[in-house]
Computed example of a mutant assay.
Amino acid sequence: MRLKRIIRLIRRAGFAIAFSGSFATASLAQSAPHLSDLTLTVGTPNKTGLHRQLIAANEIENLPYKINWADFDSTPPLVEALRAGHVDIAAGGDTGVLAAIANGVKVTILAGAWERKESGSAILVRGDSPLKGVADLKGHKVALPYFTKQHYQFAKALEQAGVPFDNKLILNLNTTDGLSALVNSQVDAFVVWDPNTAIAQQQHGARILQSLSKVIDTAGVLYAPTYAVEDPVRKAALEDLTRRIIRAQAWVNAHPTEWAEQVAKLSQISPDAANLQASRSRVEYVPATDGDVLSGWQKEVAYFRDSGQFKRDFKVEDYVVKDFGDLIRDENKKLVKTN
């Protein structure tokens, strides 16, 4: 029954796997030929994540292993696929990962990912909406993909504005259904992230009611199933791929115009939306053991536990692979020297 449920969730979320084609064998594979028989599935919970970044930055060239791509609407269905053994590494919002850990999913955190700009994490309303601030949302319907990073940010925004989190009015909708509900006046606001925010603004005239990163911000997560890190062969591949992910993100940060062009082409969104999302994002990978990273995640766990939405409390630090911190610091130093 669990497998059938997972399959339904994956289909509902728009799960898609695309094979990457043939890859040349790199020197790493020559020193460790067992990697050439390995396939890693990379999970992406949006239209601008790892899948497109690694391709745009040419970081899938000369891989010593093979890659499959797994694309999702958001982090929660991605984590369900990870639970079922269909994803080996992913990056995205922290809330879905923390919720998975609270529910007993064996997830391991490899790195944190700080958004250094405002980003497109926001509460959206229609362009002609009379709503002026978060306090005005009281009594109004809101579309929100639950247990995403924006769930936590939105909850804190309501808390600061003195508005209760009403489950009857705050509807759990994915990004496609949420946008449709906003455009068709079935809800009064829509909580979402880029490039969905940029698409709503550019193509549907949506207006940002509140930028959520200004309310509270926590680091995103690079993560993997625990079994993948416990397997020496798979871990070696994950270490190599993590370095490529860091380099790909650095390329994205340094080439916003080219990145926007690639996003428009690879994700089939409008150039205007692609340029807008690229202009307000700059992500940097950092060790997950950094104090501000861990403390932010721990406060988030406490919030969801105290509100009864997490079944148990836990120390986030216990789920971090600490030796990946040295790898991340090393790769970041190499990038500084290169630039």
Rank of each mutant, 00 (worst) to 15 (best):
S119V: 08
A70R: 01
V125M: 11
D37H: 14
G112R: 01
R52V: 14
N68A: 13
S27A: 08
R11I: 15
G85T: 14
A84K: 07
L35G: 07
H51K: 09
R11S: 14
L82P: 03
G49I: 00
A70Q: 01
G14E: 10
K47S: 03
N68Y: 06
T75V: 13
A57E: 06
H51D: 10
I123M: 00
E115L: 07
V125I: 15
A29R: 14
S119G: 05
F72R: 11
I60D: 05
G14C: 11
E61M: 03
E80S: 13
A122T: 12
R12F: 13
L28I: 14
G120A: 08
T41F: 02
S36L: 08
A111D: 04
V125P: 01
S121T: 00
S121W: 00
A81V: 02
D88V: 05
V42Q: 02
A81W: 03
I55R: 11
K47E: 11
V97N: 05
A29F: 10
A56H: 03
Q53D: 06
I67E: 05
T41N: 04
L82F: 02
K106E: 09
E59W: 04
N62S: 14
G43Q: 04
S20R: 14
P64D: 04
I10N: 13
D94N: 08
V87E: 02
N58A: 08
V105F: 11
P45K: 03
T44A: 15
G104N: 03
K66T: 13
S20V: 09
K106I: 06
E59I: 01
A13Y: 02
P76R: 00
L98H: 02
S36I: 00
L9Q: 14
V79H: 02
R83A: 13
V105H: 12
V97T: 10
F15L: 14
A56F: 09
S27Y: 06
V87N: 01
A122M: 04
N68T: 10
Q30P: 04
H86A: 15
P64S: 10
D37W: 02
H51S: 12
A32R: 13
I17V: 14
H86P: 00
A102P: 03
L28D: 13
D88R: 07
G112S: 00
A113R: 13
A18G: 15
L63S: 00
S74N: 12
R83S: 10
A56R: 06
A32G: 00
T108E: 11
T39A: 08
A122N: 11
V42S: 07
L40Y: 07
A56P: 06
I89C: 03
T25C: 04
T25Q: 11
A18E: 15
G120M: 10
A18L: 09
R52L: 12
F72L: 08
F72S: 12
E61V: 10
T48R: 08
I101R: 04
A26Q: 08
S31G: 14
A102K: 02
Q30H: 14
H86G: 12
